[in-house]
C-alpha cells in the first residue's frame, strides 16, 4: 500500500503588502493601477500552508506536493524564482488574472477542474491546502468551494495546527471567535485545510531544491492552461480608497499625570 499524503496547495500571487495600491476602473471592471508592474509575493496565508505542507511531507515519506496557482503566467514565473527555492513541489499554473475583483466561484471552478485533471493524484490520500483568505479578495471562501467541487466533506478553516495521530486520524486546531481554538478530530484524508499562519517560519532558500523544481516548473509554465476568470453577474458601482485622514491632535510636553488623567477620562466616557 502506498503511504504519505498527496498535498495540493492552492495559492497565488498578491501585490507585496508594502506597495501602495490604487484602484482603477478598466473595461472589464475594477483592477489595480499598474497591476502587472507591482512586485508580487505568494499570498501570505497560502504561503504558510505551503510551508506546513513541506513539513508534513518531510514527516511522511512517499508524500507529494502540487502547487496550483492561478495568475498571470509571466508574474508566476517571477514568483517561482523565490518560492521554488524553499519547498519541493510540482507547479500547476493556470494563466489568468490574480485580481481580487474576480469571483471566487469562478476561481474555485478553475482550480477544481485543474486538480481533477492531475495525473497520479490519489484522492484517498488528498489533503487540499491553501490560505484561509487571500490578501486580495480576502473572502475566505475559495477553498471550501474547491473542496465541494471535489466532493470533500471534511473541511477546516483558519487552521493553525495539524497533528497526525497514531491511528492515522488528524487532530486539527482552527481559529474561532474570542481568541480560542476549536479542536476537531478527522478520520483522515481526503480533507480541506485552509490555513491561517500555522507555526512554522519561512524555510530558508535552498538552491538545490530550486534547480530541481525549475526543471519541471519551466515546461509547466509554457504549457499553462488559460483561465480567463472574471466576475460575471457582479457590477461594481465604485471602488475607492478610504478617505481616512484624521486631524490628529498632538499632545506634547505635557506631564504624564495629565496625559494619564485624560486617557482615563476618555476610556470612562
Amino acid at each position: 500500500m502506498s503511504t504519505g499524503f498527496h498535498i495540493v496547495v492552492c495559492g497565488s500571487l498578491v501585490p507585496d503588502p508594502l506597495q501602495t495600491l490604487n484602484p482603477v476602473q478598466g473595461a472589464n471592471g475594477p483592477g489595480l493601477k499598474n497591476e502587472l508592474m507591482l512586485p508580487a509575493v505568494l499570498d501570505p496565508f497560502a504561503a504558510h500552508s505551503l510551508y506546513e505542507a513541506a513539513n508534513l511531507a518531510k514527516k511522511m515519506p512517499g508524500s507529494k506536493i502540487w502547487l496550483v496557482s492561478l495568475g498571470n503566467k509571466a508574474k508566476l514565473q517571477q514568483l517561482m524564482m523565490t518560492i521554488a527555492q524553499k519547498v519541493a513541489f510540482e507547479l500547476v499554473p493556470l494563466d489568468g488574472p490574480a485580481s481580487g475583483f474576480t469571483d471566487s466561484f469562478e476561481v474555485a471552478a478553475a482550480l477544481a477542474a485543474a486538480i481533477d485533471k492531475l495525473a497520479n493524484l490519489d484522492r484517498s490520500r488528498l489533503l487540499l491546502f491553501g490560505g484561509c483568505a487571500s490578501a486580495s479578495r480576502d473572502a475566505g471562501v475559495t477553498l471550501q468551494m474547491v473542496g465541494e467541487r471535489l466532493g470533500i466533506l471534511d473541511q477546516f478553516l483558519a487552521v493553525d495546527e495539524l497533528k497526525l495521530q497514531e491511528d492515522g486520524s488528524l487532530r486539527i486546531l482552527e481559529r474561532i471567535e474570542g481568541g480560542q481554538y476549536q479542536v476537531s478530530a478527522c478520520a483522515g484524508p481526503p480533507a480541506v485545510l485552509a490555513w491561517a499562519t500555522g507555526n512554522l517560519p519561512e524555510p530558508p532558500n535552498n538552491p538545490q531544491i530550486g534547480m530541481q523544481n525549475m526543471r519541471v516548473i519551466m515546461p509547466a509554465l509554457q504549457k499553462a492552461q488559460p483561465a480567463p476568470v472574471a466576475a460575471p453577474g457582479v457590477t461594481f458601482a465604485s471602488v475607492t480608497l478610504p478617505a481616512q485622514q484624521r486631524q490628529t491632535r498632538v499632545v506634547k510636553d505635557v506631564p504624564v499625570e495629565e496625559i494619564a488623567k485624560e486617557i482615563v477620562a476618555w476610556i470612562k466616557e
Binding site: 490578501a135 486580495s136 457582479v234 461594481f236 465604485s238
Partner: peptide, 18 residues
Amino acid sequence: SIQRWYYRQRMIATLTRS
C-alpha cells in the same frame, strides 16, 4: 447593493449581483 473591503481593508467597493 452591498459594501465590502478588498485587498485586506485597503479599498472599499460597492457592488451588486444578478
